[in-house]
Design a protein around this nucleic acid. Structure first.
Lengths: 361, 361
DNA sequence: GGGGCGCATGTTAGCGTTAACAACGTGATC
DNA sequence: GATCACGTTGTTAACGCTAACATGCGCCCC
């Protein structure tokens, strides 16, 4: 009679195990483990021997075993709302990269910011043995979702919240400074009639961007000859459609603004579309800038001058933070908020204002 | 003196183990395992008892242990090229969902279709112990990448290739039929002067779409009164910019086409932008349709009538297929290619042609 | 020159789960 | 009433790895 299949199974698995490597290198498995994990307590000669054995056998550690033995391999939840999918894409790339590095799984869950739906989502995450949650916008602002998560005692890292709660872990950029910088840039190009399209009022980043814009304008009027026309502003909602509406109103003003700063790229793209419809050339007759540097910014023509948020990097950082907190069993005492640098990306949609009077609508 | 920390450690891990559940329910761990995994050989009373215990203790199986014991938990590679990030986003959502379901990890790797870069990417994947690879467009067409992968003897599933190789696993839609359907739809609206913008020549889906378009036109001329003007066509490259160029040429034709079918949404968006610039109203003066139903289709105004590819579903299917093949240790004998249904999404960019003569440029 | 210290390596005992087999009871069958 | 089959449950031994501890060796210093 045959022995149990399992024991006699002829190495279906292609990969060598740590034991094979150990035998090959003439050391104990533990030493191999140490080399692979970069422990300091290995002599350089042994290390070299082992490394060669690893290479020769094409060994690579079994994740499951490693996770089991070292009590890692947790699952993190990613609660995403109604995201710009360009945003989600980059976010996922960054988050997955970091998750793989930490040997952690990522579990996605879609969620709306309503009590019923978010409760269900959180429950599903819990039933999926998730030990921490990533909260990208726009959900990071939803107090309902946040309450639900904290009731479940899940550690949370919010991403890109304009004004993160003091007691919550958060990765974000400085929306205020970014908007300030962009506005200063427009001013430095020579623009004086500036207009702004605000972002969705339920996201705190919108307000920060607006404040940055006004701060730059104040610098300008303080620095020079007193009173200036008040900044033109329209409320938008981050959607292309809302940008179109805002653009129509702003371009109807007399005299028309020479530069429009939209709070995100979708709305900036809408401004360009509307400008073209009116026969205005961008940037000759009108400068348009956006925010976020999402896909659409470099898709349309002319390409948008905008503020780049390193979304992938932020997501990776958020995963790092969450893994750290989960493994430590508590929130980190310091560095609860991590500020990521942004960048002003200059493309073709911004230029100095046309000295000739802009065409009247 | 203290015992080893490990043994005395007071249950840091929140989750109960299978043993806890077994004790609680008064059965053996094996029985619990059977209930959890839905084995048939459990009496219904025992099953209920165990299920209650599971619920009461909030038990959820440890993935790492399960993977280790059942020799699962493989890693799949996702080689992505220069993707539309809208595409990548949806793709990732679907792939991750399915990967989580199968208890499989996903490892991302960026790659260009050049020998050097792709070789490096494949090597990185191998060193990451990847056992199979997903190949979304545009990489699925790169023979260099494919050769590199097959040299490494990695099973591969390509996604959305227009004409999948017969011996390769593939998930795709019927680009030909979809284009045929869309063109018939335009004809049914009353359009006669149709124009087409081709997709990038290095992707076989482009050719399929073009063939679908011409086939529909042929039906039309066969069905009715003989000769018709030949279809107008411009070569595009899937980019917004190339769509703009193509649109300029097509709209300069006399008499101008009443409907333009672009091979993807980015190019369709460009056609709309160019039409607006010329003072044409879409869809009153010009019907524009796209393909793919990516983000931009429902972002711009008017929203695009387009063909929807269920990208997330295709990605999930691809993961299913790959996991199946890997676990079986070979390619499935049948169903090497899976055809996913598409859908024609009718939005605002298409309408019946304007009976009044279109304005001359 | 013995005690102590520090680096390098080996040994042991699990981590939580499941595959394979064993064992047990309960009826049905001859 | 012994036999056999079947449905149900339990037992055992891994899966591949690493934490914790143990050991061994060389070196330095009072």
């Amino acid at each position: 009679m045959t022995k149990p299949a399992r024991r006699s199974r002829p190495k279906l698995r292609a990969g060598a195990t740590i034991k094979d490597v150990a035998r090959h290198a003439g050391v104990s498995p533990m030493t191999v483990s140490r080399v692979v994990n970069g422990s300091a307590y290995v002599s350089s000669t042994t290390r070299r021997t082992v490394q060669r054995a690893v290479r020769e056998l094409g060994y690579s550690p079994n994740l499951a075993a490693r996770n089991l033995a070292s009590e890692r391999g947790e699952r993190l939840g990613l609660l995403y709302g109604n995201p710009s999918s360009a945003y989600l894409s980059e976010f996922l790339v960054g988050a997955l990269e970091s998750a793989t590095r930490h040997g952690v799984q990522l579990v996605l869950e879609k969620c709306e910011p309503t009590p019923v739906v978010s409760r269900r989502a959180v429950r599903r995450l819990l039933s999926g043995a998730v030990v921490g949650v990533l909260l990208p916008p726009p959900l990071c602002e939803s107090s309902v979702v946040r309450a639900e998560l904290s009731a479940a005692r899940l550690p949370v890292v919010t991403v890109a919240s304009g004004r993160p709660a003091a007691d919550t872990m958060c990765v974000h950029i400085d929306d205020y400074s970014a908007a300030l910088e962009m506005t200063r840039y427009l001013i430095s190009l020579g623009h004086e009639r500036l207009a702004f399209i605000k972002g969705h009022p339920n996201q705190s980043a919108s307000e920060e961007r607006w404040l940055g814009f006004t701060a730059a304008l104040e610098e300008l009027s303080r620095g020079s000859h007193g009173a200036r026309p008040p900044p033109r502003m329209e409320q938008g909602f981050f959607s292309f459609r809302s940008g179109l509406d805002a653009a129509r109103k702003l371009l109807a003003i007399e005299p028309a603004p020479t530069a429009i700063f939209a709070s995100n790229d979708d709305m900036a793209a809408a401004v360009i579309a509307e400008a073209h419809r009116r026969g205005l050339d961008v940037p000759r007759d009108l400068t348009v800038v956006g925010f976020d540097d999402t896909l659409i910014a470099s898709t349309i023509w002319p390409e948008l001058t905008t503020i780049q948020q390193p979304i992938a990097r932020m997501a990776a950082e958020a995963v790092d933070m969450l893994v750290g907190a989960v493994r430590a069993g508590r929130r980190p005492a310091d560095r609860l908020h991590r500020l990521i640098p942004h960048a002003l990306i200059s493309r073709q949609s911004a230029a100095a204002p046309n000295p000739a009077a802009p065409p009247l609508t």
